[in-house]
Design a binder for these strands. Sequence first.
DNA 1: TTAAATGCAAAGGGTTTGCACCGGA
DNA 2: TCCGGTGCAAACCCTTTGCATTTAA
Lengths: 143, 143
Amino acid sequence: MGNDPMTLAGTRERLRSRGLRWTPQRRAILDVLAATDGHITSAELVERCRLRDPETTGSTVHRTLDLLERLGLVRHSHGHDGRLEYHVLPSTEHGHIICESCGATSEIGPDAVRGLVAALEEQSGYRIDLNHLAIAGICATCR
Amino acid sequence: MGNDPMTLAGTRERLRSRGLRWTPQRRAILDVLAATDGHITSAELVERCRLRDPETTGSTVHRTLDLLERLGLVRHSHGHDGRLEYHVLPSTEHGHIICESCGATSEIGPDAVRGLVAALEEQSGYRIDLNHLAIAGICATCR
DNA sequence: TTAAATGCAAAGGGTTTGCACCGGA
DNA sequence: TCCGGTGCAAACCCTTTGCATTTAA
């Protein structure tokens, strides 16, 4: 449940309607992304695609991710090591809290920060995008 | 006022007490950082150092930044383009709110988020580092 | 058929590293 | 003098790009 952040069929149609093609590689990438919770580096994505098709190449994966980002299905950022990290757009808006020590992440639901967001929006004049909320700290285990 | 995030003299002593050296290059880098508000990419830092000494090299700047990070004077992260970005540690703890459209940033003071931070710390078990709080949104001008 | 997509390999761009020389303390 | 720092250039790593080939439609 709550496990359907992107519809494969919908993507296929979306591609076709733009004259783009639905290939086995793209299907594999979408499958992996659909099974991804939160974010994934391109290297991880390549690796998981190779479980299905060992011939998967990095350039195709990168190009497909660019495409998916243009379609609005994923968003990229850069991890603590500077590598590309793709976030599967979540069905429910949420932020992340990241451990500075071990890199573990947890989600922050909208409820936890609703009051703050309202206050900040008023104070700063910004309209806040909760999906890009990233808070750093030290997790319980590392402390 | 509030414009003295790192004392040059203090850094010099800190280095010396560890058997490390106070060089013209390090002095230039510290001077530039002291005049930096918020964050700076390593390329910008190199460029500004070259205004003072055109011979400044990237490797020295990078190595010095590593050192300063170990000393706790700066912190690195990765900008939207993936390049290294160094944050001069502020005297007063604060976070940032960033416009997704134009890239403008504003500071978020501790007061604005105190309640949230307390709630999140309890809920997540993390000890939150407010200096790494980054919130994305669309600023008033871009809306 | 035909333009999009792929795969390979090479190019890019920023960061890091090895090493000989330099220079604070 | 002695070790840490510097500068240069090469090495690295990940990402992007050019181009010939494959393939979805």
